[in-house]
């Protein structure tokens, strides 16, 4: 039941992302200043926005976990944060390449958006070490959720704090109308949608994978096989229905 809509979702995200990139490459006008290099914008900004959205989504699932005590919510929160971290690495790498191309430096410290993203990324990097260092499963799940909620609240607050410091070069993508002409805006929004779909697909895929593995393990146990020795893992265990 977990993999039911996975195929549709996967096709939809491939089509949307490919369409978005095609729009970005052929339909959106070439940037007057930066030329072709500006096209990385259609990859970098959706990556960053979806990663941040994923962190907040993980926090939402963690709130639900704390409220209901349902272990599957903990698994959902874990996978959401896990996927966001991967997209976050992508956003940092593409951002760095873009910064090198357009500002001449790999990293710019006086730019709040970059710094805020890095701080949030570093904070979430401690999520897995935290889980790993708590052995009791219930406590691990509860503490991880407390962390996810705290960090989820921290994410917008941190951006607010650094945004109030005067922004210098990093463009604001969504709040200024004259920043993006219509064609660029359309291509960007399609790319953003595609990236969000990709995130949801990966998230569901990982959940399906974890459930399939848990089911396989319980079947093996029923067949009387010795429980395969598992390495220690930070990931929550899926419950077999």
């Amino acid at each position: 039941m977990y993999g039911s809509r996975l195929q549709t979702l996967a096709i939809a995200s491939v089509v949307t992302l490919a369409g978005g990139f095609a729009l970005a490459a052929f339909y959106a006008p070439m940037d007057a200043d930066q030329g072709f290099m500006q096209k990385i914008f259609y990859l970098h900004v959706p990556l960053a926005i979806v990663a941040l959205g994923g962190f907040v989504f993980g926090a939402y699932q963690a709130v639900q976990h704390l409220r209901t005590g349902d272990p599957s919510r903990d698994l959902k929160s874990y996978v959401a944060i896990h996927m966001s971290l991967i997209l976050g690495i992508g956003a940092l790498v593409t951002g760095s390449i873009w910064a090198r191309a357009s500002w001449g430096k790999w990293w710019v410290w006086d730019e709040p958006t970059l710094v805020a993203f890095l701080i949030i990324f570093l904070l979430y990097c401690t999520y897995q070490p935290l889980r790993f260092s708590i052995e009791d499963r219930d406590r691990q799940a509860r503490y991880a959720s407390v962390f996810a909620v705290t960090a989820g609240v921290f994410t917008p607050l941190n951006f607010l704090a650094v945004r109030l410091a005067d922004p210098l070069i990093h463009p604001r993508t969504l709040d200024s109308q004259d920043n993006l002409p219509g064609e660029m805006r359309l291509a960007f929004l399609v790319c953003l949608l595609g990236m969000a779909l990709l995130y949801v697909t990966l998230w569901k895929f990982e959940l399906t994978h974890k459930h399939a593995r848990a089911q396989l393990r319980s079947l093996k146990r029923k067949l009387g096989a010795a429980d395969a020795a598992r390495g220690r893992s930070a990931a929550p265990e899926a419950t077999v229905s």
């Binding site: 070490p129 260092s133 407390v146 960090a151 941190n158 650094v162």
Partner: peptide, 27 residues
Amino acid sequence: ALAIQTRARDLIVPLIGLPLLVPVVIG
């Protein structure tokens, strides 16, 4: 309180605490 129940208590406090306190440092 989060770190006290973990095995790596002394590591967890600065790892989680420092990024969370960055806005305080900035301000």
